[in-house]
Design a protein around this nucleic acid. Structure first.
Lengths: 131, 131
DNA sequence: TCTAATATCAGTAATCATTACTGTTTATTC
DNA sequence: GAATAAACAGTAATGATTACTGATATTAGA
């Protein structure tokens, strides 16, 4: 893997992602960083997010709302998407990699990985509906 | 749920999906049906696919390649996406709904469902790489 | 069966997220 | 400190999808 040339923009993008737990989209990254870097370009945000995702430094989440979300936490974990407010929340749960073995039983190819998203109502939305 | 007015186009779209096992995209539906219905509109295809998906008559699959795929088989089953050729294949596997219980252990909201895609090399791509 | 009401259609324009292009700036190397 | 090339800002282009508009076709009622 070729070495990257340092850039303040990429550094700021990764710093920003590390500081957040809410899995921002490219546009959210752009809008937020614009305050500190007024002439940051949206193309730069997209290019660096893809670059970092390709290198495995961040995760690209396709949660189904049509726009990609990003996560700087690359440790194995799962995500929950609230159908009420759309928020993307980390789940702390035990490993379920055995589902790949289950899926492979009647399959004649090779399974290398899986992506799972859980859907429902988040705690805040549940609470709001009660009142 | 309001009753739908019959339309030959919607009928043809659903018939087409039922006849296929390869989970076509909107554009694939449009291109194929155009042979029989030369003045079918792409907008009609999109509108009816969304309509059918909203009513639960078909499934919308967001496999991660940027375009939605559709499946007329609404019985519970899982999908495999080949990273070699991009094909979307049905998996015959035992139920893994218990992962929702596992996910809910340390979570303060309600989990109503999950979406799982398995990734890897399909049988044909495995074979091709050997030769 | 005829007609009115309206859902659906075809065709096209608009939107949105994302990517590609171009000339300029900036980090690295010597 | 100058040469090289990666990365940038700004903008144009792309591709999937949605929205709009006037025409057509299905359904319900007379």
């Amino acid at each position: 893997m070729a070495a990257l040339k340092y850039s303040r923009q990429r550094e700021a993008i990764k710093e920003f992602l590390l500081s957040r737990k809410d899995h921002p989209t490219a546009d959210m990254v752009y809008t937020s960083l614009r305050e500190e870097y007024p002439n940051l370009s949206l193309g730069t945000v997209y290019r660096n997010l893809s670059l970092l995702a390709d290198r495995g430094e961040i995760l690209r989440l396709r949660v189904g709302d049509g726009t990609d979300h990003f996560d700087a936490d690359v440790s194995p974990h799962y995500h929950f998407i609230c159908t009420g407010c759309g928020s993307v929340i980390d789940l702390e749960m035990e490993n379920i990699d055995q589902i790949e073995d289950i899926a492979g039983v009647n399959f004649n190819g090779q399974i290398y990985g899986h992506v799972t998203y859980f859907y429902g109502k988040c705690g805040a939305c549940c609470k709001r509906e009660l009142s």
